[in-house]
Amino acid sequence: MTEDARFEDGGERPLNLGALDAEDLGVIAALVQDAVLPVTEIRWQAAHRRLGLLVNRIRWEDVEPAKRQGRPVERVQSLLVIDNVLGVASQGVDRADKDLVLQILTVTWEPGEDAEGHVVLTLAGDGALRARVEALDVGLRDVTRPYVAPSGKLPDHSL
């Protein structure tokens, strides 16, 4: 006999998710919304056809339980990895500015011919990263324990 998993079953376990289609990518996009990262934490490994970003994401999956329990907002460091990458382009991202901190607004899929397409990371301040991929394959994996967000607040998107 099997039963459906419940949200509570996840507990404090780290996330380890993959996206092979646009619907799955939407889940990852929701989880990395408002993630921040220094520009120095972006790695394009052309030989491995991989683009990796070490992001500090809000634990959106824990926001409502935290509010109910009076706990502070938490972040966690996660690896956002795009595989099957054929090329990477950026707009509004000065890789020479080692102090630059980027904020991810969303991640989207732009399908192309056959399985090819582009994974686009839209950044605050009119920046963007665009990975041309042979096929959609994006992963998100938590790599640290959660920590209290320094601001203690959630971003305000009401403007």
Rank of each mutant, 00 (worst) to 15 (best):
L15I: 11
L15G: 07
L15V: 09
L17R: 02
A22M: 07
L25R: 05
G26S: 07
V27L: 10
I28V: 09
I28S: 05
A30P: 10
A30I: 06
E41R: 04
I42M: 11
R43S: 14
R43F: 00
A46V: 08
R49W: 05
G52C: 11
G52Y: 12
L54R: 15
R59F: 13
W60R: 08
W60D: 00
E61C: 13
D62M: 11
V63N: 06
E64K: 06
K67H: 09
R68N: 07
Q69W: 05
Q69K: 11
P72L: 00
V73N: 03
E74P: 14
E74A: 09
V76C: 12
Q77D: 15
L79S: 10
I82T: 10
N84L: 08
R95H: 13
A96P: 14
D97F: 02
D97P: 14
D99I: 03
L100Y: 09
V101G: 01
Q103F: 01
T106W: 03
T106H: 10
T108H: 08
T108M: 10
T108Q: 10
G112P: 08
G112L: 02
D114Q: 14
E116F: 11
E116S: 15
G117T: 03
G117E: 02
V119H: 03
T122I: 08
T122Y: 05
A124D: 13
G127K: 03
R130L: 06
A131M: 03
A131D: 00
V133K: 04
E134S: 11
E134R: 12
A135D: 15
A135C: 09
L136M: 07
D137K: 11
